[in-house]
C-alpha cells in the first residue's frame, strides 16, 4: 500500500517493539512496558496483537488470524485484510500452513509447531488487576512473587460455588516465577500453553504491555490439591463434524429454541469434515460437508 511503511509501523516503532519482545522472551511471563502506538483500529480491537505481529512479520511469513477460533468473524477478517494490504504477505485460514497466528480468545485445536509463532490479543494483561487496582502495588507483588491474593480469589470460588468457577482468562504461573493472564482464552486451552513447541507472544495495546512464553516453558494453571485444575467438558459432540474433544460453541439455529453445538475452531472443523467425519446434523448451518472448502 502506497504511503505506508511495510506492516504499517515506522521502523523506529518496530525497533522499540522488537526490543520489548526480546526482553519479554528473556523473562518469561513478565509484562514489559512498551510505547504502544495509535493504530487504525480502536483500542480493544486487538491493537496490541497487531503491533506485535507488525513488528515480527516478514515477506516469508504466512499469516492466519482468528477471533474466537473462527477465521471468518469481523475482527479476524479486518486484521487479516489490514496485513494483506500493508505487507502483501500470504494469508491462510489453515492452521497447518501458517507461520504466524494472531488470535483473539482461542488457541487452535491442532498442535502448534516449532516453526510457528502465536500472537495473542490481550485486553487486560495484569492478572492481579481486579484484586489490586494500583499499578504500583501489582508491580511490587510481581517483584516479590507475592501471589497469595490470587489463591484467595480462587478459594473464594470454591467456598461459594464448591468449585473454581473461573472459566476463561484462567491464571497461570509461567516458569515457576510470574503469574500471568493467558488472555481471555477458555481454560480449555490452558493445557496447550504448557510446554508448547511454538513461541507465544502476548500484546496489550491499550495497557501498553508485551509478554511472552518461550517454547517448552512450563505454564501451570493455579489450583488446589483437593480442587485440581480441570477443563470444560461437553455432553454433546460437534453437530457438523462429530468431534468429541474440541471446544464447542452453542449456536441458535431457529426461532423455536433449536440449538446445536459446533466446533469453535472453524479450520479444525472444516478439516475434519473434509476428511470424512460427519456429525449428527451436518447440514444444520447450511454447509453440507461436501461443499466446505478444504
Amino acid at each position: 500500500m502506497d504511503g505506508y511503511n511495510f506492516a504499517y509501523l515506522d521502523e523506529q516503532t518496530k525497533r522499540m517493539i522488537r526490543r520489548a519482545i526480546l526482553k519479554a522472551v528473556a523473562i518469561p511471563g513478565y509484562q514489559v512496558p512498551f510505547a504502544s502506538r495509535e493504530m487504525p483500529l480502536p483500542y480493544g480491537w486487538g491493537t496490541g496483537g497487531i503491533q506485535v505481529t507488525a513488528a515480527i512479520i516478514g515477506l516469508a511469513d504466512t499469516l492466519k488470524v482468528i477471533d474466537q477460533g473462527a477465521d471468518d468473524t469481523t475482527n479476524a477478517v479486518s486484521i487479516r485484510r489490514f496485513f494483506a494490504r500493508t505487507t502483501g504477505v500470504a494469508t491462510t485460514e489453515r492452521t497447518a500452513d501458517a507461520t504466524i497466528i494472531q488470535t483473539r480468545h482461542r488457541i487452535p485445536e491442532r498442535s502448534l509447531r516449532a516453526d510457528q509463532i502465536i500472537v495473542f490479543q490481550v485486553p487486560i494483561p495484569e492478572p492481579l488487576r481486579w484484586l489490586e487496582p494500583r499499578e504500583t502495588e501489582t508491580r511490587k507483588m510481581h517483584a516479590l512473587s507475592e501471589y497469595g491474593a490470587m489463591h484467595v480469589k480462587l478459594y473464594e470460588d470454591v467456598a461459594r460455588h464448591g468449585r473454581i468457577a473461573t472459566a476463561y482468562d484462567y491464571p497461570v504461573m509461567v516458569g515457576g516465577r510470574y503469574l500471568m493472564r493467558p488472555s481471555p482464552i477458555p481454560k480449555f486451552d490452558n493445557p496447550k500453553l504448557d510446554r508448547s513447541p511454538a513461541l507465544q507472544l502476548f500484546g496489550a495495546g491499550r495497557e501498553k504491555r508485551i509478554y511472552a512464553v518461550p517454547p517448552h516453558t512450563e505454564v501451570y494453571s493455579l489450583d488446589f490439591e483437593d480442587h485440581p485444575f480441570e477443563v470444560q467438558k461437553w455432553e454433546q459432540a460437534c453437530a457438523l463434524c462429530g468431534a468429541g474433544d474440541s471446544f464447542l460453541d452453542e449456536v441458535i439455529v431457529d426461532d423455536r429454541g433449536g440449538r446445536i453445538f459446533v466446533c469453535s475452531d472453524s479450520d479444525h472443523c472444516g478439516e475434519r469434515r473434509a476428511a470424512g467425519h460427519v456429525g449428527a446434523q451436518p447440514d444444520a448451518l447450511g454447509q453440507p460437508a461436501d461443499k466446505v472448502a478444504p
Binding site: 518496530k14 525497533r15 522488537r18 522472551v25 515480527i56 515477506l59 516469508a60
Partner: peptide
C-alpha cells in the same frame, strides 16, 4: 526494512531457543 525484519526474526529465534 526487510533486512532488519529478517535479522530480528533470527535474533528472536536465537533467544527463544
Amino acid at each position: 526494512v526487510q533486512d532488519s525484519q529478517r535479522a530480528f526474526r533470527g535474533l528472536l529465534d536465537a533467544i527463544a531457543r
